[in-house]
Design a protein around this nucleic acid. Sequence first.
DNA 1: GTGGTCTAGACCACT
DNA 2: GTGGTCTAGACCACA
Lengths: 129, 129, 129, 129
Amino acid sequence: MWLQVDARSSVPMYQQLVEGVRLAVARGDLRAGDRLPSVRELASAMVINHNTIARAYQELEREGLIEVLRGRGTFISQTPAVARPEERREEMRESLRKLVLDAYHLRMSQEELESMLRSQWKQFDGRRG
Amino acid sequence: MWLQVDARSSVPMYQQLVEGVRLAVARGDLRAGDRLPSVRELASAMVINHNTIARAYQELEREGLIEVLRGRGTFISQTPAVARPEERREEMRESLRKLVLDAYHLRMSQEELESMLRSQWKQFDGRRG
Amino acid sequence: MWLQVDARSSVPMYQQLVEGVRLAVARGDLRAGDRLPSVRELASAMVINHNTIARAYQELEREGLIEVLRGRGTFISQTPAVARPEERREEMRESLRKLVLDAYHLRMSQEELESMLRSQWKQFDGRRG
Amino acid sequence: MWLQVDARSSVPMYQQLVEGVRLAVARGDLRAGDRLPSVRELASAMVINHNTIARAYQELEREGLIEVLRGRGTFISQTPAVARPEERREEMRESLRKLVLDAYHLRMSQEELESMLRSQWKQFDGRRG
DNA sequence: GTGGTCTAGACCACT
DNA sequence: GTGGTCTAGACCACA
């Protein structure tokens, strides 16, 4: 299964599911038009309550990443438009700000942090390849 | 007040307090040996429940950034040793991983992301002077 | 095809079909006595389940806009009597109530809303011409 | 109770709650800073499951109409910013389009429809006074 | 079959 | 006390 969640994590399972699908799309494991497992299929496969799956799917639909075709199932959108890009860029800036602060307390240099970033980018790109 | 929290934020108030102190130390607004306000002082000044302040102080103490001298008060540590550095580095890697994923969905290039990081570093360094 | 539906929409496909026919009649694209495609014809042409088409036709028949002549086909009524006009007027009032509320939240004035209404009326009248 | 829902309606109860709060704010029954009943209070008062209330509150929070102060409760926002005004204006145009079509089938004139609109506006404004 | 909604009851984090 | 999450099981509308 290309999706997995950790029930003990402090981040909610439905959020983990959302991020899992986002990742799968980013990596190309899921492409536009691909059908997602039905709510109940996935629920039974992952031994998770179906409401939890449904909530994740709804979140993804609001984001525009997936589309629900009534009675037929759930699919990756043809047009994965980025919702509120400026807001999300600002969130990224905020995350980076916090990251820089943490790096300072870990006595990391700018170079170290950047190389860490490059390494993550490479891994992601590699897996996407 | 060099410290401020937003009760509306989704990040817990005690966490915001922790980060606020970390930032103040990083910027040099607080230096080794400086005395922090007492839990009750700060609680009344910020109109926040004192349990929330206490929890933040506990967190900071566990992290080694502050020291509680019983009966005398709370102070910025002389030796702000980095507690569990490997754990925290791993957390940073995790944050970067998520950041890279988000950058992808925002259709950002590696260059853009890095330049955003450098910009944050610069701002932080500037304010630290 | 003068009829089209969006499976992604939150409004049920059979509803979209009903409204599509209503619009076609209002615009004069369909006139009294005109024959509608058979359920199966339309279903195959639009790649939609025939139950969905059937349900739309039932709705339109109940409403008096079309007539089913058994064995001969489905036709636009000669006498498109308005079924349950008071009920439908009440529904319109309800819609307008909701519209006014939304307009308020969008900080629109009564004039703006009315001008928007007039503009829609004009467009409709124009297409009907 | 200024809020009421119809369990038999086809529109979901959580949606009715959302609209009820929107209405109360528009009418001035709820003002910026006012505290909403807690999820469980309201749930027991309305004999509705608390999850249903929670869902409505979450929807309203996403809209920006209300704010959750962690551990303290839920309040009407000071800054009820209009989220995605252009999208919502387009939705209004769409509603008006459908309204005009219905008016045609009810043999209503433009004047009748406009007077119906003015009457709704007046009632709303009156109750808001 | 699909997703959407609701209830009942539980546990958790935060203030 | 507050809201947030999750499970279990039910019913409904739609295709």
